[in-house]
Design a protein around this nucleic acid. Structure first.
Lengths: 162, 162
DNA sequence: AGTAAACAGGACCCAATTAGTCCCGATTGG
DNA sequence: CCAATCGGGACTAATTGGGTCCTGTTTACT
């Protein structure tokens, strides 16, 4: 199966949730809202922060917020933040790995075209697009916070009820 | 790192090699030509056969050959043959996995757009394109068969010397 | 027929990657 | 000062993927 990390999936969930109500919120809060385990959220947010997608405020009352408007954050950005450079094979141009037989590898360079195509495809969809879809998806309200076990969560944002 | 399997990389190498001289060849022979370990080649070819990318002939003198012209085999085909359906997240439409919270997952369906974009990007490059590039790459000849350890091979086709 | 070459399918193991947890130090607001 | 919160990184557990092997079937050739 050709797929993104589970963490990347989580990342979109978190970011979309933040984008919907643009306020500062703590990892703790994010964990509660999304159902993703708190330590995992913390780890995730560090990656997103290092990649410059979210801004962080330390200390009591601190937390995270989007660094740029949602329309300026693409799926490619998110993937790169969590998984590193998008390079379909080890010997592609943006890869930091090194192909040991580069001099004699006839396929070398050919994947770059594919990489570029994929990268641009992933750059075309932004968080804003996803937020839009979410907004029109038909919001649901729950009596109790919908608690889902981590293993089960794939892309869940628990709609705010408080 | 967002990347394809090593097996998928191998697959392109093998298929490109077959495409270059369109004749039937055994797993054994393919292994020799590419430097990929024989058992791995065997496994790989089974996948490619099951996916309908190569035709197989059993018995002595048997082997594999392309099922369709190289220009009709895309990178997407190869990836799908080796890794299964291209579905970036578990809950995407072509996925056989099931998203347990589909009813309340607001992101659901949104990745499909991304999936489609990626899929079409991957469909645009065919084996024929890659073969062309290989042909003009500047063929090299070696005195001895270039033996590369499996761990090192990323995308190698050993140019025929016999 | 008999034998050897080759594919088909699947079980299995080991290594590599990824997911997830935890700890400790730094920062900041009350 | 204390509590809340981020930052970095070490560590463990779980999952996946790469690779091997075995057993059966098909086919060519003698």
């Amino acid at each position: 199966m050709f797929k993104v990390n589970k963490l990347t999936d989580y990342a979109t969930v978190v970011l979309i949730d933040i984008a919907r109500t643009d306020t500062v919120r703590s990892s703790q809060r994010i964990a509660e809202r999304t159902g993703i385990p708190m330590p995992t959220v913390a780890k995730l947010m560090k990656s997103l922060h290092r990649a410059g997608l979210v801004a962080s405020t330390r200390g009591a009352g601190g937390g995270y917020s989007l660094c740029r408007p949602a329309k300026d954050i693409s799926v490619a950005d998110v993937i790169q933040a969590v998984e590193g450079p998008i390079a379909l094979t080890a010997c592609a141009d943006t890869s930091d790995e090194e192909c040991n037989i580069q001099k004699l590898c006839p396929v070398q360079g050919k994947w770059n075209r594919v990489n570029t195509a994929v990268r641009s495809a992933l750059s075309e969809v932004t968080l804003a697009d996803m937020v839009d879809e979410v907004a029109t998806f038909g919001r649901k309200t729950f009596d109790a916070p919908a608690v889902v076990t981590p293993a089960v969560v794939t892309s869940a944002v628990v709609t705010e009820v408080r």
